[in-house]
Design a protein around this nucleic acid. Structure first.
Lengths: 345, 345
DNA sequence: ATCGTCATCCAAATCGTTTCGGATATCTAT
DNA sequence: ATAGATATCCGAAACGATTTGGATGACGAT
């Protein structure tokens, strides 16, 4: 069914070797025969079998990405944006993207073993790093090229290629923005504790408070699940226990949106009675009601850089910079506003 | 570097054939030697080379999807949702997803030839069908399995597997919703004319008007680009030329959001002075200000069904139903409201 | 006439699996 | 003792490409 080099060889009277070299443009084949062979390949509609080529060359021109299964629907908005930006960045430099959705834990690791060990990709992209991340350990042990969106946790060494935004400074900026607006009682909804970046964000929160000489209060801090429902729940809990709270920092936009719903359900006007900030700047943030003050992640840029780094790792180039920390930018919208009424504390 | 069957054969003293059959669980290998071989494979950390297996089996367990390059950033929100739902649906039935981003036209077709002709996938998923779609013609000519999100245009035959929502009924329902609210001057922002579904939506609009005995006016209809900026521009144009217009039907959410911005920029209150509807129900629609009345597309369901259909096509099963038309549901939110003041026409 | 150079071509091995078609040895029934 | 069954194993040929290491013949220089 498929046209192979053998067919072209038979048709042209040359050997498979010569046909292969002719089509590859080697200069040890006569220009006339090259043209002749090219014409036959064209008319026969020859398409090289990429599997065979990959097997022989031990090179797939493919980048792998394993996304979380939507059961544990952790921030699908974030991942779908990453996916899109990666696929276009990859295509631009001649890679395809192989995607598999797996739920964290054993299925996820099995997918890594299968895809990486099975030679299906030249390199992997990881995202959403966890503490003592098993995937990173695995890829390092195999010495397989990979690039990560996100560093290791503060107390671990990030001895791998990554690109991350400085979320510590980002959260700090958000908190300072709030204290600047007069807020003194600021809640925090963190990512789950097992995420690598959670402590960075926690630290940023502490720094922000310290910069305004505000005390840190453990009961103002809660660990969420990065989903809307979690934001809703934790915002309610915070406001139940601390009615004097006038601002909440959520560590991603989905939780911030959930917190907004919770506030509005209790009759609070977001941006007036209660200020809320997010993180990521997903499209919905801009359209939220009110639009969400958040920390922007340049996903398009991140995708491009990840692919660029991974490509240089794969090619074994004297890689330029393989660890990049982007500065984060606070986008101020209407979900934050000056603290209204009430005494200080 | 990689552990192969040959290594296990050497280590165990059996032939490559027997090792292969042992690991595959054939019953013509002694149970003891099977266990022995399995143990060795385990300790050596054997992972089958999937490229070799695929080449030999002529089966890749992979589904391909080519997304538009974000240069022609046509509805990335829609595509990223589709991508995510497809990848998880595919993983669930044992397929990986191969993604390549290409801009429409020659690069896109080249990617189809390369990936399909190159034997990299068992089947393809298409989305955003166009009139006289070259990709569909190509896949049909190769007799390669594929499933499409979206039918052919009304005047073409849809002789291929697809799943689509009944957008004609959807738009009609939106128009009837508006006429029910008293609107008489209803604008329409269509998708680009080359899209296959454009006429369905146009027809739905006409039907909706007819059902309320309203005249069709060509100057109320404009072709957009599915992007926000287009919605913004066309809404402005409509409102400039027809200040009496009280409602606009946009054919996707991004354009609807753009139209909302345009309206708000001219001081119109959306849902009061001007009603706006969208299509797709992307996440941002719910969070829009005001929340957008729109027609819901069950992306998760669509992804699952596409994969199921494609899988049965690939396996050559006496395929159940390969053409599915989902009924569309209008989600009424605050961007539409009763027509205020003014005389009828 | 002989040698070296150059241009052009190709056989065979390789990448790692799977499978077809036996081969071999053991055992059962006669 | 022999034929036929049965259990267990394996060599070799695919799948379709690339590359190594020549082979061949024509040609000019000596």
């Amino acid at each position: 069914m498929q046209i192979t080099l053998k067919d072209i060889a038979r048709e042209s009277g040359y050997s498979v070797t010569t046909v292969s070299r002719a089509l590859a443009g080697y200069d040890d084949v006569n220009e006339n025969t090259r043209r002749h062979i090219a014409t036959i390949a064209e008319t026969l509609g020859y398409q090289p079998n990429l599997l065979a080529r990959q097997l022989r060359n031990q090179r797939t021109q493919t980048i792998g990405l394993i996304t979380p299964a939507p059961d544990d629907d952790v921030g699908s908005e974030f991942f779908s944006q990453l996916l899109l930006s990666l696929s276009s960045a990859a295509s631009r430099v001649g890679y395809d993207l192989l995607v598999s959705a797996q739920s964290a834990g054993e299925p996820e690791m099995a997918a890594y073993r299968r895809i990486v060990g099975g030679n299906r990709v030249d390199g992997m992209i990881l995202a959403r790093t966890r503490k003592h991340d098993e995937r990173i350990a695995f890829l390092k042990s195999l010495n397989h090229p990979f690039a990560v969106n996100g560093r290791a946790a503060p107390d671990e060494v990030s001895d791998f290629a990554y690109i991350d935004v400085d979320s510590q400074a980002g959260i700090r900026a958000a908190v300072e923005h709030l204290t600047g607006l007069g807020h003194r009682q600021i809640g925090l909804i963190l990512p789950p504790p097992e995420m690598a970046f959670t402590e960075f964000r926690h630290n940023g929160y502490c720094e922000g408070l310290a910069a305004a000489d505000l005390p840190y209060r453990d009961e103002f801090v809660r660990y969420g699940d990065l989903m809307q429902s979690g934001g809703y729940m934790h915002a309610n809990a915070l406001l139940d226990q601390h009615p004097q709270m006038t601002a909440i920092v959520a560590c991603n936009d989905l939780m911030a949106l959930g917190a907004m719903s919770a506030a509005q359900a209790r009759g609070l006007r977001v941006g007036y009675d209660l200020s809320i900030t997010g993180f990521d700047d997903i499209p919905a943030a801009e359209y939220a009601h009110p639009p969400l003050t958040t920390i922007h992640q340049p996903m398009h840029e991140i995708g491009k850089l990840l692919v660029k780094i991974l490509d240089s790792l794969i090619r074994g180039e004297s890689t330029e910079q393989t660890q990049i920390l982007l500065s984060s930018t606070l986008v101020i919208r209407a979900s934050t506003g000056r603290r209204k009424g009430g005494a200080d504390d």
